[in-house]
């Protein structure tokens, strides 16, 4: 039987560290000119502590899914590395096979991530059997997992994906991610395709399973309310870069980066007597092929000045564990300390 891999570095050692992680996709059509690239993820650093939920938010195209595929080692980074519980992955360190047992992923599209020709039972027991678990053991584990995600095995084990609702399929994807006793689960927009009442069921389930199986989550979403609900710490991305990172309370109550502020202000008021009259931001995010020089947010930022076009802003720590990458934030802090 497959068991969970043991902890190595203790609670103080981050479960995962991303160091200088970068992915530039070459654009095939620009043969004539100098090779253009999409800077999908550009030199990002962060860590995920054991037992926490790190939320990643940002608008579409900001690089969330690319970051998750880099973490999963599904694509080769242009540069940078991922360190898991103190070991780097590949060549000298942790083998990809061992890493993949400990890190699993759940996608937004519940349908295309399941093989339509396999029953639910076959889908969930497949990976354990590949890892050498005898069939009968794998099946009984599958039934336990179906129970854990709230689907009666007697009713659902023999069904095919098309015989399930979107919410039920997402439960199957979650059960399958749990099959190898992972330590970390990367959830890429896991509830974005679901109706509100089903979203609530799946969020409750994810919170329960985290406790029950002692998991760590990276939870990616474009929905700020959902991230606020589930995350312990939040990382805000804009055009392939980290804009701000901090504990959920601090970041939501006291956002420092102008982009984070605008993102939070863009949420509907839920109070018709206090409707907004001006949108917090104009325009759409620019193209990551030729991102703006200096600070990538400067084309939409109300506070931008000359320096913002010249130099990329450094990370500035505002409070313990809470930093933002913005010249204005750094300047403000300098002024206060003087």
């Amino acid at each position: 039987m497959i068991e969970r891999m043991p902890d190595r570095g203790g609670p103080q050692q981050p479960l995962l560290i991303a160091r200088g992680l970068t992915k530039h996709f070459p654009l095939s059509k620009s043969l004539m000119r100098r090779r253009e690239v999409v800077q999908a993820v550009d030199n990002i650093d962060f860590s995920v502590m054991k037992g926490e939920t790190l939320g990643i938010v940002g608008e579409s195209g900001c690089g969330k899914s690319t970051a998750s595929r880099l973490i999963m080692q599904l694509i080769e980074p242009t540069s940078g590395e991922v360190i898991f519980d103190g070991e780097s992955i590949g060549r000298s360190g942790l083998s990809l096979k061992k890493y993949r047992r400990q890190v699993q992923m759940v996608f937004q599209d519940s349908y295309s991530s399941l093989n339509p020709r396999l029953t639910i039972e076959e889908s969930i027991s497949y990976a354990p059997m590949v890892h050498g678990v005898p069939k009968s053991k794998a099946i009984s584990r599958t039934h336990e997992l179906l129970e854990a995600v709230g689907l009666a095995p007697s009713q659902y084990a023999r069904r095919y994906p098309h015989e399930l609702s979107g919410g039920q399929r997402q439960r199957i994807n979650i059960a399958r991610a749990l099959a190898l006793h992972p330590r970390l689960i990367v959830l890429d927009e896991p509830v974005s395709a679901l109706d509100k009442s089903v979203e609530a069921q799946v969020l409750n389930l994810l919170i329960d399973l985290k406790k029950q199986f002692d998991l760590t989550y990276i939870f990616i979403s474009h929905d700020l309310n959902v991230v606020e609900h589930v995350a312990d710490r939040v990382l805000v991305m804009y055009l392939g870069k980290i804009a701000e990172i901090g504990p959920v309370d601090s970041l939501f109550s006291d956002p420092a980066h102008p982009y984070t502020q605008a993102l939070l202000d863009s949420r509907p008021s839920m109070d018709p007597s206090r409707r907004r009259t001006e949108p917090p931001l104009f325009g759409d995010p620019p193209n990551p092929i030729n991102p703006p020089s200096g600070c990538r947010f400067r084309t939409r930022c109300r506070k931008a000045w000359g320096l913002c076009a010249e130099q990329p802003p450094p990370f500035h720590q505002i409070k313990p564990n809470h930093s933002a990458s913005c010249h204005a934030v750094a300047l403000e802090a300098e002024r206060v300390s003087e």
Binding site: S197, H229, F252
Partner: peptide
Amino acid sequence: IRSPRHPYTSGLLGATVHAGTRGTRLTT
């Protein structure tokens, strides 16, 4: 928004994640 009466409407609004649901169990 303030005082839904139909059980489905109340259920739907109760299930909707919003600022302030953190730490609470969502009703489903």
